[in-house]
Simulated assay, not measured.
Amino acid sequence: MGADEEPAEVFADLARDLCTLGADGVARRVTAVAPGLVPGCEDAAICLLDRHGGVVPAAATSERAALADRLQHEAGEGLCLTAIRGVARTAPDLLGNDGGPIAEATGIRCMLGVPLVAGTDLLGALTLSCGTPYAFDARAVTTARILASHAAVALAGAAARRRGAELAEALQSSRVIGMALGVVMAQRRLTPEQAFDLLRRASQRQGRKVREVAADVVETGQVPVGARVR
């Protein structure tokens, strides 16, 4: 097998692995493979955007990589945040620009930041680092972009699966609650609003979710003991 074929095999194996993982698993897997895949890379970190637009550290291969990202977030600037805004950039030598404090605190001299983009959605940033200045050449940048693309597609897939699971759970909860309401309405001759209020107060009294109380009603055919309508 030629050297040029090895990255292709790694990416193929990676794609198969990532399609089964959640967001945290994707972040850990991608950062773990980066040092052996991207020329010059010694450490890697991933930060993701949450549903409210906040930046959340997701994975890092070392404490110094995590610290480098944290220092950038605290300062409100840096290569990681630039990547999260959608711009890939390399800092060849942190001591030669505004990255001096990071270099002094972590020993990192060279960094590469790549956005994680799926379609038009910015999901986060992949940050690669090395203790040697000028570590990332054009080949490293290209490989990092490919790795970031794999990560972004996998993250988008994980998010879609999560939304699907949440929707399925919500639909199932609605069906169960609807069936329980029918039982309560029939037994107590209540309106839908009164029946739901009865289930809600029963759930508060028992310290359980409404869906759980409703499931008991559907299974047993019995209204919760002591349940009364206001």
Rank of each mutant, 00 (worst) to 15 (best):
D93Y: 01
N97L: 01
G113R: 03
A103M: 04
P92R: 11
N97Y: 12
L94N: 05
A118I: 06
A103H: 05
I102K: 04
L112A: 03
G100I: 10
G107D: 01
R109S: 05
A103P: 07
L95A: 06
L95P: 09
V87H: 11
I102C: 14
A88C: 08
P101R: 09
T106P: 10
P101N: 11
P92F: 05
A88L: 13
G99M: 03
A91C: 14
G119N: 06
D98W: 12
G99H: 04
A91V: 14
E104K: 07
A88F: 02
G96L: 12
A88E: 13
P115V: 14
R109I: 08
I102G: 09
A118H: 12
G119L: 10
G99C: 03
N97R: 07
G119T: 10
G119V: 08
M111S: 13
D93I: 00
V87P: 00
A105L: 07
L116D: 04
E104R: 13
L112S: 03
V87F: 09
T106Y: 10
V117A: 07
M111V: 15
T90M: 11
R89A: 09
N97E: 14
V117E: 11
I108C: 08
P101Y: 12
A105G: 07
P92T: 08
G113Y: 04
P101T: 13
D93C: 00
D98G: 07
V114E: 02
A103R: 04
N97H: 11
P92D: 05
D98N: 08
G119S: 05
V114D: 00
L94K: 04
D93A: 03
T90F: 05
M111F: 04
L116H: 10
L95Y: 11
L112W: 05
E104F: 02
G99A: 11
E104L: 10
L112V: 09
I102D: 02
A103K: 02
P92G: 08
D93G: 05
L95N: 12
E104A: 14
D98E: 15
T90V: 15
D93K: 00
L94F: 13
L95R: 14
R109Y: 04
A88Y: 03
I102V: 15
D93Q: 02
D93V: 01
A88R: 14
